[in-house]
Design a binder for these strands. Structure first.
Length: 758
DNA sequence: GACTCCGATCTTTTT
DNA sequence: GATCGGAGTC
């Protein structure tokens, strides 16, 4: 088989070992996608397995589509029949055809996180609970966590452990909210993201004949990014492959970064116990990065205790050291990074697309964008506030959703008075309360509105109902594009936006047009995204499902590819770039203070750092600022502890930018700008002293320029220690310190946070 | 019921 | 620096 040529030994084994349970531990850059692709091709070509019997779960739909293309290149058009996609999209599809078994309509709506939180807010209000205490985010996370561990609201309320736990957190009513939330979703014919997995589990648990059907269909199951699956997902795959036991999981424990949404690293560590005959293959050779990058990454991840043994290595070139860029403020950081990209491009003939800027939080993109724009460097942002979260888009989508599923409460609330029809919140709330009290569906209540609300509102509702009925017929009869057009025009949304001639209004109008284009593209597009046996249908409902389940990377449909990519580190999973800038390398930002406060999981943050660095093929830049705007306030920052953790051999300060005298910050706060407009402005309150590097009140590092051997020092993280060696030989000074509790460490003096004790 | 203005609050990360 | 909700007014 020609496709087997050029594989190294473990890769070859991973491709050709097809039977029985198997785990592939794939280090960063070890050619995992290649292995997965060829493995499927091999199953079909050499083992004559029907593509129809293969299920491959990937991290993004885009990855699935690309893999399908590559397999098609090897085996031909048969590849179309492989079931491929994300957990959510594959099982949403299965749930649609099996919905009746669990009492759902097959046209159920999928609630995104915004819908879920909005519903939670409504419930909290209805129960007269304190919305400061029962914040939508907190409640939602709690419910989500329960569902991901397969705890139903009944089990939740029956288990005293949850009760006492909630009571201790001063939120005793959480169980009640969970119950009402679940009931309301069910009544609205809606599933949230977690329900897609939760209900699949219920379906398989309670309907063995259904499980059996899929067990026999999916004779070979593959799971990519296994380290980021949660218990719910794990159980689905385990059940599906219980008959054939041909389950192959691929993952890297060092890249597990989704514990916060229920991913359980124990899945990977316990897999062996569940499958005693498990074969384990390790892919340890890195083909992506330079030696310097691989070794630096290894030196970081070495600090983690929880990990499987593996030895990632590369035969690639040595490469250059990681460069450290220091700046006075977040705005200057943007400037320096943009300038650096500009210069790298000029010096080494790189293209824009060879660069990625990675950050911990989405809000960090702003400063970068500004600077890149100023230097005329094209960029694109992956993730963040997506197109589909814009108000005008959500409004139109809500019309579509409600026209398909007349009980979708969240969509109804969005559109019933949009454009204004004289149906106010008082009326809507009354209707919802009546529906819930009499256990009637919203749709039913709407049709008898005249018995509940005054004549004028009732008339308006009557017209609204007629409108929706018209749309429903339209959707039934026509393809998605025609239906979407009718809805956009018939609802009055399009005219409303057209009438608004402001810049924002024009923008919104264009966005809606763009959405309609996307529907058109969907209708025209012959490609299948999810795979499976049915011919692709061009119904509006299918379009809606696809866009709700798009992952961040899926949404990257920019035709102009030569752009610098900006995204969070989470979004960068599975991608690679020639050069990577990791910005905002500051304590409390990365590692995130929030993460450390809420879950105390420094190791996950470190894995995130590991993921970020290993995206790069050639060069890594780390950047930190000494001050940064957060919550509209300028705060001083200290360099991240992660910088210290890199073995100094692999890192150096950027000769171009390190230590340059920096501009004072001239930005003013939004409050100041507002006051200025009102004419009541007081002086801008930028404190110049705050620009100086003052890590924390109780730990002020000393000037290390006169640090000498055998001096006693203190470090904020490592505690007390003694200097054993000062190294002045290189471009930057280094000190070796033996810490009382942490042993010997070598620190770069120019940014070492050391306090000298004389 | 619609509209406007002000202040509070928030920011991890995502399907 | 954006969004949301509440209060006040038409």
């Amino acid at each position: 088989m020609d496709y087997l040529e050029g594989l190294n030994e473990p890769q070859h084994k991973a491709v050709t070992t097809t039977e029985g349970p198997m785990m592939i531990i794939a280090g960063a850059g070890s050619g995992k996608t290649r292995v997965l692709t060829y493995r499927i091709a091999h199953l079909i070509k050499s083992k004559s397995i029907d593509p129809f019997n293969i299920l491959s779960l990937t991290f993004t739909n885009k990855a699935a589509a690309e893999m399908r293309n590559r397999i098609e290149g090897v085996i031909g058009s048969e590849a179309r029949n492989i079931w491929m996609g994300t957990f959510h999209s594959v099982f949403a599809r299965i749930l649609r055809s099996e919905a009746a078994h669990i009492g759902y309509p097959s046209n159920f709506t999928i609630y995104d996180a915004d819908d879920s939180k909005s519903l939670i807010r409504t419930i909290v209000k209805e129960l007269n609970l304190d919305d400061k205490l029962y914040k939508a985010n907190i409640v939602f996370n709690r419910i989500s966590g329960a569902k991901n561990r397969l705890v139903s609201y009944k089990e939740y309320n029956a288990n005293p452990a949850f009760k006492t736990d909630d009571a201790q957190n001063r939120r005793p009513e959480l169980g009640k909210i969970y119950k009402i939330y679940a009931e309301r979703c069910f009544k609205a014919g809606a599933m949230d993201f977690d329900d897609l997995l939760f209900n699949t589990n219920i379906l398989f648990r309670d309907h063995l004949e259904v499980l059996n059907k899929y067990q026999h269909r999916f004779k070979y199951v593959m799971v990519d990014e296994f380290q980021d699956t949660n218990i719910s997902q794990y159980l689905i795959t385990k059940n599906l492959s219980a008959v054939s036991e041909n389950i192959c999981v691929v993952g890297d424990d060092a890249q597990s970064i989704y514990a916060f949404r229920g991913a359980d690293i124990q899945n990977i560590l316990n897999f062996e116990k569940d499958y005693p005959t498990l074969k384990v293959i390790k892919l340890e050779q890195n083909y992506r990065s330079t030696k310097n990058i691989v070794n630096a990454a290894n030196s970081i991840i070495g600090y983690n205790k929880a990990q499987l043994k593996k030895n990632v290595w590369t035969s690639n070139d040595e490469g250059t050291q990681i460069e450290l860029i220091k700046s006075a403020s977040d705005n200057e950081e943007g400037k320096l990074v943009a300038t650096s990209i500009f210069e790298e491009k000029a010096q080494h003939q790189f293209h824009n697309k060879d660069f990625a800027v990675l950050y911990r939080t989405n809000s960090q993109s702003r400063a970068m964008e500004e600077s890149l724009r100023k230097l005329n460097i094209k960029y694109k942002i992956i993730g963040g506030l997506s197109f589909y979260q814009r108000k005008e888009i959500k409004d139109l989508l809500a019309y579509m959703r409600f026209s398909i599923n007349h009980n979708d409460e969240e969509s109804l609330k969005r559109i019933i008075n949009l454009p204004k029809r004289g149906i106010g919140t008082t009326t809507v709330n009354k209707l919802i309360v009546v529906a819930n009290e009499h256990n009637k569906s919203i749709w039913e209540v709407l049709q008898h509105a005249n018995q509940i609300v005054p004549g004028r509102a009732a008339n308006a509702i009557g017209e609204f109902v007629a409108l929706i009925k018209r749309f429903a017929i339209e959707i039934e009869k026509n393809d998605a594009y025609e239906a979407a057009n009718t809805i956009a025009k018939g609802s009055g949304l399009l005219q409303d936006l057209y009438a608004d001639r402001t810049v924002e209004g024009l923008n919104r109008y264009e966005n809606v047009q763009e959405l309609l284009n996307a529907v058109k593209e969907f209708v025209d597009n012959e490609e299948e995204v999810t795979g499976g046996e049915e011919p692709k249908d061009k119904q509006l409902g299918t379009f809606l499902q696809e866009i709700t389940l798009l992952t961040g990377q899926d949404r990257d449909d920019d035709d102009d590819n030569d752009k610098v990519t900006l995204m969070t580190i989470h979004m960068a999973k599975g991608l690679e770039f020639k050069n990577v800038y990791i910005v905002g390398m500051e304590e409390d930002l990365f590692p995130s203070q929030m993460m450390l406060n809420s879950r105390a999981d420094l190791e996950e943050e470190r894995r995130l750092f590991y993921v970020a660095i290993t995206r790069a093929e050639q060069k890594v830049f780390l950047s930190y600022a000494l001050s940064r705007y957060r919550f509209g306030r300028l705060k001083s920052c200290e360099p991240s502890r992660f910088i210290d953790e890199i073995d100094p051999k692999f890192i150096k300060e950027s000769s171009k930018f390190g230590g340059r005298t920096t501009q004072p910050v001239t930005q003013v706060t939004s409050q100041y700008a507002k006051n200025l407009v009102r004419g009541s402005a007081t002086k801008p309150s930028i404190n110049k002293a705050s620009l100086q590097h003052t890590p924390s009140a109780d730990f002020a590092p000393s000037d290390t320029s006169n640090l000498q051997e055998s001096m006693k020092v203190e470090h904020p993280k490592f505690g007390f220690g003694k200097v054993t060696e000062i190294d002045n030989s290189g471009t930057s000074r280094k000190a070796t310190v033996v810490f009382d509790n942490f042993g010997e460490k070598t620190l770069l003096l120019s940014f070492a946070k050391l306090k000298i004790h004389t």
